[in-house]
Write a protein that binds this DNA or RNA. Structure first.
Lengths: 245, 245
DNA sequence: CGCATAATTGATGGTTATCAAGACCAGTGG
DNA sequence: CCACTGGTCTTGATAACCATCAATTATGCG
């Protein structure tokens, strides 16, 4: 990715060839810019969800809480992601949106989607399909939370993160920085921070992962994949049914 | 719903006013018809997913399995539902599709969606939004599987079913037939059939539910809702951003 | 009635939550 | 330079919840 190419364009170019019109549409989505510090609530559940966000840089996650404080982290976002698609189905956002690191977001109003639907059939189809792909990943995650033990859940979580990062960063190998603490990881996988700690320690003793200087290293990705039956949903998407350019 | 009105049309009419063009499109989706007996595999995971289905009558569910046989039921379908949206993002279906009762399905090829996208902006926006709504429900389900105990999960499951049924059946009260066995309910909520049995018995002793002649009765829906913080995502959908008719 | 499937119930064990104490680490200020 | 601080991670002890196993009862159907 070149210095000044948008991560959004880079991410979407993976799937279809964008023409000038598409390119112009995507540029309008990244006109505005807003910065947030780490550990900041960008948007709280229950607020009106008139805006979506393109992530320009940084990490965020969305979560949903129960009255007694139990929390479920729903999704982790990186550069190039579009945040808030599911919310456009609702009047009010269902999720809290937290920054993890310093982030730069590009907010744009729901109505811009209307323009895309009207103006570019291929781009509409792509955004639609990306949302559906997210839904498939939610399906995988349901299986993970519903039927897997702590060890398998952590393996799945790490693999999912690394596969997401590889979409925009082709050169990435098996080492990455994970800016989430163990409480957040636990909230993402339905575990406590204590169990996350013990489980990661065990994975490390078994030489499946390693941790150095705040980085995670997947030492035996194959074994991790087999452990949790991981399927990479980010790679092969079916765009064959899209309207012609 | 009148005798000869399609459940699909009935369901979608809840959300927008359909014009003649929309109506014609929807009719093409229900041209073909196929019957299946109860407990039949309509489509297995890994098969090519060139078709979607409109449910004309009956119950079905989709599931995903692990190598060792553990199973997660992902979604339950009733009359008026469209099955397979998430699969159009993939070359091959991620899920198995099982009939629960006798069912009548209307299969239609993916390509028909292309026609809808090209032909009706409002209908495209609606189908898109319905998929996003499903995703929001998956989010709720993630929270349920990740952070709730058996009692809360069963409460959530029963409430979700009843709210789905109420979309097309306005006259429905608090009594309904649930054609799933306890193993299937367990697979849907990440529990064993034994735990489902014990938990439902406990809910019954606490006079929150009752079971008579194969029917489930929600005796205290308010208490059930509060127990699992249930939110009805089927009611209020935001269609204000849709293109003009 | 007899059979198969499903549901119930009790006993036991395993996994993870909970609680609590201590170690580690980076940043801050004396 | 070092003590102090807040956050995070680690580790062990205990408890709660659910899975597993197994036996029995209920239900529905030919």
């Amino acid at each position: 990715m070149s210095e000044n190419e948008s991560c959004l364009v880079s991410k979407l170019s993976n799937y279809i060839d964008l023409d000038q019109t598409d390119f112009d549409f995507l540029t309008t989505l990244e006109e505005e810019e807003e910065d947030f510090p780490p550990r900041h609530v960008v948007r709280a559940a229950g607020e009106e969800s008139d805006y979506l966000y393109v992530v320009k840089s940084g990490w965020l996650f969305s979560d949903i809480e129960l009255v007694d404080g139990r929390r479920q982290v729903v999704q982790v976002y990186n550069a190039g992601d579009i945040i808030g698609m599911p919310d456009i189905a609702l009047h009010r956002s269902a999720l809290n949106l937290h920054s993890i690191t310093d982030v730069v977001l590009c907010p744009f109003p729901k109505q811009h989607l209307d323009k895309i639907i009207t103006g570019s059939k291929r781009l509409s189809a792509l955004l639609f399909t990306l949302s559906l792909r997210d839904q498939v990943i939610f399906t995988d995650k349901l299986r993970t939370l519903g039927r897997m033990n702590a060890r398998e859940r952590i393996a799945w979580f790490l693999l999912d993160i690394v596969h997401r990062l590889r979409i925009t960063n082709r050169t990435m190998t098996d080492t990455f920085r994970l800016p989430m603490n163990q409480t957040e990881i636990g909230d993402a996988m339905g575990l406590t921070s204590v169990t996350v700690s013990k489980t990661m320690m065990q994975l490390q003793l078994d030489k499946l992962i390693d941790r150095r200087g705040g980085n995670i290293i997947l030492c035996d990705e194959k074994a991790l994949r087999e452990m949790c039956d991981y399927i990479d949903r980010y790679r092969d998407m079916d765009t064959s049914w899209f309207p012609e350019a």
